[in-house]
């Protein structure tokens, strides 16, 4: 592409040295990825199908996953948690994303920094913050007890609620970014036109902004779901011993029970959940693309 036909007299030697160099440049990356990614992944997949003692192929580990009750419960809990996070990230992120997409004042930069700064703080700091806030003797319970609204602490931590709050906070910046990109793509004149023709604010949002930002809503939910389902630290710390998701169960299988084949099966189930979700996203995106190109006679 870059070497147009301009190179009229290419010296033969330079040509030859350049044909092998790109391959040499690429090979270290491919080597690292095959040794520390492809090979381990293959081994893990193989292990999930292998009898521990005899090394013969088996589906026993998968059978155990489906029948022991705990694993399937963990799988469903992970899916439920991720779905709740996806919904709350999208709902909470929408007003911020709309503001960032439409505002032209100097407050935009402030809100942008506020919305994205937590991302730099790392997961531990934020989870620690939520632990302090949601604990039995924490910020919220202390405030409510002080005001006399409750007589005993509300169970805010070590449960699904705490994990969903913590993960929503972790994932929110990513949701805001994808919603913002989508809303920025909507022509603001559409909103102005509707407003001039007498539509109320609510009608403009309901009939123009929301329907046109559906792709952003979908992608924000997909990102939030996948990030939540694979999170480890937040469920481990905010969920406590009673709230087990796949990520924390995998960790226990590897380091406490030392049951590698079963850990592999759990990892596979998490991986398949992710791949299914991304497949839905890819399908949706390609459908939308083809519909858009049909209706506008091939855009771009």
């Amino acid at each position: 592409m870059n070497s147009l036909a301009l190179d009229l007299h290419p010296p033969a030697r330079r040509r030859r040295t350049l044909t092998w160099f790109p391959f040499a440049a690429l090979s270290p990356s491919l080597l690292v990825l095959s040794v520390f990614f492809a090979l381990p992944m293959g081994m893990m997949i193989g292990m999930s199908f292998t009898q521990t003692e005899t090394f013969s192929p088996t589906l026993d580990h998968y059978q155990r996953f489906f029948t022991d009750g705990l694993s399937i419960a963990g799988f469903c809990r992970t899916a439920l948690m991720s779905l709740l996070v996806a919904i709350s990230v999208t709902v909470l992120g929408y007003p911020v994303a709309y503001f960032l997409a439409r505002s032209t004042t100097r407050w935009r930069a402030v809100v942008f920094a506020l919305a994205l700064a937590p991302e730099l703080a790392g997961v531990v700091l934020r989870t620690y913050g939520w632990l302090i806030i949601l604990e039995d003797r924490g910020f919220i319970n202390d405030l409510l007890l002080h005001l006399g609204l409750i007589s005993s602490p509300l169970p805010l931590s070590k449960n699904l609620f705490a994990v969903v709050v913590g993960l929503t906070h972790v994932v929110l910046p990513f949701g805001i970014l994808s919603l913002m990109t989508s809303i920025q793509g909507i022509d603001p004149n559409l909103e102005r036109a509707a407003q001039m023709l007498g539509a109320s604010r609510l009608a403009v949002i309901r009939t123009i902004v929301l329907p046109l930002s559906v792709p952003g809503i979908v992608s924000s939910m997909l990102i939030a779901f996948t990030m939540a389902a694979s999170a480890y630290a937040t469920p481990a710390l905010l969920g406590g011993a009673g709230f087990k998701v796949l990520a924390t169960m995998i960790y226990e299988q590897v380091l406490f029970y030392i049951d590698w084949p079963f850990a592999s099966v759990m990892a596979m189930s998490l991986l398949l959940m992710m791949l299914a979700i991304s497949f839905v996203g890819v399908r949706y995106e390609s459908r939308r693309r083809s519909r858009a190109s049909v209706s506008s006679g091939g855009e771009r």
């Binding site: 990614f37 090979l39 381990p40 893990m44 995998i250 990892a267 992710m274």
Partner: peptide
Amino acid sequence: LSVPQIVKGVAVVLF
């Protein structure tokens, strides 16, 4: 990128 980190981590430690 399409494999969750926790799965990559398990794979490497098992390997």
